[in-house]
Design a protein around this nucleic acid. Structure first.
Lengths: 295, 295
DNA sequence: ACATAGCGGTGCAAATTTGCGCCACGAGGT
DNA sequence: ACCTCGTGGCGCAAATTTGCACCGCTATGT
C-alpha cells in the first residue's frame, strides 16, 4: 500500500504549530484544539514516520534533528495551501462573502474605521471580518485578505498601495491650550512615547515647535497618550487622523502639522482577483484618497 | 482566527485521490477508506473553501474549474510530503525496519527473487515488503524505496543502477528439443508476444536463428508463454534468467543467447541515505553483478 | 524555603467520525 | 424492454477522536 496515504496530512499542521509555539499547550491555544489532542496527534505522526520529532521536557517541546529536517517541508506544504486558498477565492466572482481585514488597534475609531464601516453600507452582501491587532496578521499565510498599516515603508512579497501621506501634530486638552503662549512651550509638559530612560532633554523636542517644553511620562500606545493628554497632563504627538478623532483633544496652538508616516493598504497580489476583495480595495483607495486632507 | 488552521489538511489527500480516481468509490478503494467518508470529506472541504470542486454525476466526479485550480497545489503538497518522508527516513541510521521493494511480477521466481530472499537471511533486523506488480510503483511518491525494472532505458528524477545486461534465448519443452534439427526451425512453431494481427511472417522471425519457423499464438505475458511452451506447443523467447528458472523448459538447441534488455535497480537519490535501504541496494548490486552470467 | 505557573502525560466520558447497508438513478449491454 | 453495473447520497450503530480534569514534575520568583 501507499505509505503516505496512511499518514494524516493534518498532523503536519499540528507539527508546524508546535514547532512555532514551542509547547503543545501554546500550539493548542493557537490552533483552537486541546493540548492533549495536539500532543496525541504529534505522537501519532511520530509513530507513522517512525521518528522522534521533538524532545520532550518540562519546558516544552524542542525540535530534534529529525524535526528540523521535517520543518521546511511542512512549511512548504503550508505555503502551498495558502496559495491554493488565494487561488480558489481568486476565482470567486461573486460580490458576496467575507473580506478579512486587519488594522492596527488604534485605527478603529478613526476615519479609517469609518470608511470600512461605510463600505459595508454600500455592499450589503459582503461581510467584513475586522481584526484589530497590533501584531500584523500574515497575508502570506492568508490569515487576512487585506492589511492596513501605518509605516514608513513596507516590504515583503505583497502589494502595497499608498492610501495617504499622513501628518502628525501636537494635541492637548482645551483647557491646556488656553494656558499656552507663543513661547516655544515654556512651562508645558510633553508626553513621550517609550524612549529609553533619562532622556528628558530628548533631541526631538529641541527640534520640535516646542523646544522649551518639558518631557514627562512615557506612554507606549496612543490610548494612554490620549488618556493623559485629555486629563490635561501635557501635549502629546499623534497622527492627525487619530488625534482629530479624539473628542477630548484639540490641536495645540502655535504650530503646524508635521509630515509623518504613510498609510498603506497591503494585500497579496493574487487576492485582488477575488471580486469582493478587489471591490473593498478599490473603495478604500478611492474614498480615503478623496479625503486625504483628513490625514 | 487563522482561516487555514480551520481547514483539515488531510481533506486535500482525499481531494487528490478523487481527482485521480474519478469517483468517490474508486478513490475510497485506493485510500483504504469508505466511499461515504471520501464523499463527506470532499463536501467538508468544499464548504471550508466555499467552492464547488467537483461536478457530481452518475458517472462519477469531474473537476470544476475551481477544482482544476486547486489540483496543482494539492499535488505540490503531496510532493513535499513525499520529500519529507524520504528526508526523514534518510536520517534513520538504524540497520532495522522495512525496505519496500517493487519488482515485475515475473521476476518473483527468478534469481532476482532469490537474491532478495537471501538478503533477509543476512539481515535479520530488516523486513522486506515485496510488491510484485506489473504497474510500476512510484518512487516519486515514496510508495516504495526501491524498484527493480527490466527495460532498455530508464528516465525520471531517480537514480538507476545497472544490475546486469541480460540475454534472451529461445526455450522449449525437452521433448520438442529432441525433435528439432539444424534447419532454421523448419516445421517448428514460435509463440509470439502480442504483435498486431496477421503478421505470421513477422520480420523479427526472419532475422532470428529460426527464420523458417512458423508464428503461432499470441501471448501477452511470460506466464502464458511458459504454459504453452511447457506443453510443447512451440518455441518461446524469454529472458535467460527467467527461462532458466522454469522447470519445464530448456534452451532450444542450434542457437546462442541474444543480447536483451537491462536489469535496473531504481531508487530516489535521497533514499540511499537510509541505512537499511543503502544496505539493500549494495547487497543487490554486488551479488547480482557477481552472478552476472546467470542473466 | 516556599508558592506559583507552566509543562507533558493519562483516564474517562462526551462528541465526532467512520463504515455499513441501503436507496434512487442513469448509462450500456442484451 | 429489460437487466446489470457503478454512481452519489443518507440513516444508523459502532469505532474513534476529542475535551476535560487531573497527575507529577520543574523551573522561576518571592
Amino acid at each position: 500500500m501507499d505509505r503516505l496515504t496512511q499518514l494524516n496530512w493534518d498532523d503536519l499542521k499540528f507539527f508546524l504549530a508546535i514547532a512555532r509555539a514551542g509547547s503543545a499547550r501554546k500550539a493548542a491555544h493557537g490552533t483552537g484544539a486541546n493540548h492533549a489532542t495536539v500532543a496525541r496527534r504529534l505522537t501519532l505522526l511520530e509513530e507513522m514516520l517512525d521518528a522522534r520529532l521533538f524532545d520532550r521536557s518540562q519546558q516544552g517541546l524542542t525540535l530534534t534533528r529529525m524535526g528540523e529536517t521535517l520543518l521546511p517541508y511542512a512549511e512548504r506544504m503550508e505555503r502551498e495551501l495558502a496559495g491554493a486558498s488565494r487561488a480558489i477565492s481568486g476565482q470567486d466572482t461573486r460580490i458576496a462573502g467575507t473580506v478579512h481585514v486587519s488594522i492596527p488597534y488604534f485605527m478603529v475609531n478613526t476615519p479609517v474605521g469609518e470608511h470600512i464601516a461605510a463600505f459595508t453600507a454600500d455592499n450589503p452582501e459582503i461581510q467584513i471580518a475586522l481584526q484589530a491587532s497590533n501584531q500584523l496578521a500574515s497575508l502570506q499565510r492568508h490569515e487576512v485578505d487585506v492589511s492596513i498599516r501605518y509605516a514608513k515603508e513596507v516590504a515583503g512579497d505583497m502589494v502595497g498601495t499608498v492610501l495617504a501621506h499622513c501628518q502628525k501634530a501636537f494635541y492637548c486638552a482645551p483647557g491646556l491650550a488656553k494656558r499656552m503662549a507663543d513661547n516655544g512651550g515654556q512651562g508645558i509638559d510633553i508626553l513621550g512615547w517609550n524612549e529609553p530612560h533619562d532622556e528628558s532633554d530628548a533631541e526631538w523636542i529641541k527640534a520640535s515647535p516646542f523646544p522649551n517644553a518639558n518631557l514627562r511620562h512615557r506612554l507606549a500606545e496612543g490610548a494612554s497618550q490620549t488618556l493623559f493628554a485629555t486629563a490635561g497632563l501635557g501635549l502629546c504627538i499623534l497622527p492627525c487622523f487619530y488625534g482629530d478623532a479624539q473628542p477630548g483633544l484639540i490641536r495645540a496652538p502655535y504650530h503646524d502639522p508635521i509630515p509623518d508616516r504613510t498609510l498603506w493598504l497591503l494585500y497579496h497580489k493574487d487576492i485582488r482577483d477575488t471580486a469582493r476583495v478587489g471591490l473593498f480595495i478599490d473603495y478604500m483607495t478611492t474614498n480615503i484618497r478623496k479625503h486625504s486632507s483628513d490625514f
